[in-house]
Amino acid sequence: MGEGKTLPTYFCRNCENPLALGEDLISKKFVGASGPAFMFSHAMNVVIGPKIERKLITGSYVVADVMCGNCGETLGWKYVETFHLRQRYKEGMFVIEKLKLTKKL
């Protein structure tokens, strides 16, 4: 295997479109609409929806829904803006529901 080349490890469960690299996984302790969710610093092959204000467990945020760029499945959301200083680290991060993912090594 070539140096410096990382293969995608998280894929859309629906169509196997590559979505995120294992090295971009920040946390497995988030909750989405369908249960457990993962936070990633980056996501690929996704479509970002319009910005909307949404009330989540830890407060109000401006978020954008994230859909698979191949099959259109809604995967989770991207944090666009937070209103609380303690939550600012979430801005720009992606939350993808565990049930929407499959992992390949």
Rank of each mutant, 00 (worst) to 15 (best):
P50V: 09
I48Y: 03
L56V: 10
C71N: 10
I57G: 12
I52E: 13
C71V: 10
I57Y: 11
W77C: 00
G72K: 04
V62N: 04
V63W: 01
E81K: 07
M67S: 15
G72D: 06
R54I: 15
V66Q: 11
K78H: 05
T58A: 14
I48C: 05
A64D: 08
V80C: 04
I52K: 14
P50H: 09
M67K: 15
E81A: 02
S60T: 14
P50E: 14
M67P: 00
R54F: 15
W77K: 00
K78Q: 15
V66S: 10
K55R: 15
G76K: 03
T74K: 06
Y79I: 00
I52A: 11
H84C: 07
E73L: 09
K78E: 08
D65E: 15
G69W: 07
A64P: 09
Y61V: 08
A64Q: 13
L56K: 10
I57C: 10
T74A: 01
T82A: 08
V66T: 14
E81G: 00
I57S: 15
E53A: 12
E81V: 01
V62W: 04
S60A: 12
V62Y: 04
A64N: 09
K78R: 15
Y79D: 00
L75E: 02
T74Q: 03
K78V: 06
D65Y: 12
N70S: 11
P50C: 10
I48S: 05
T82L: 02
A64G: 08
S60F: 11
V62S: 06
G49E: 11
E73G: 00
P50W: 09
N70R: 10
S60I: 13
I57E: 12
E53D: 13
E53F: 09
F83R: 06
D65P: 03
E73F: 01
Y79R: 01
K51I: 15
K55V: 13
G49H: 05
G72P: 02
V80R: 02
E81T: 05
N70T: 10
S60Q: 11
V63P: 03
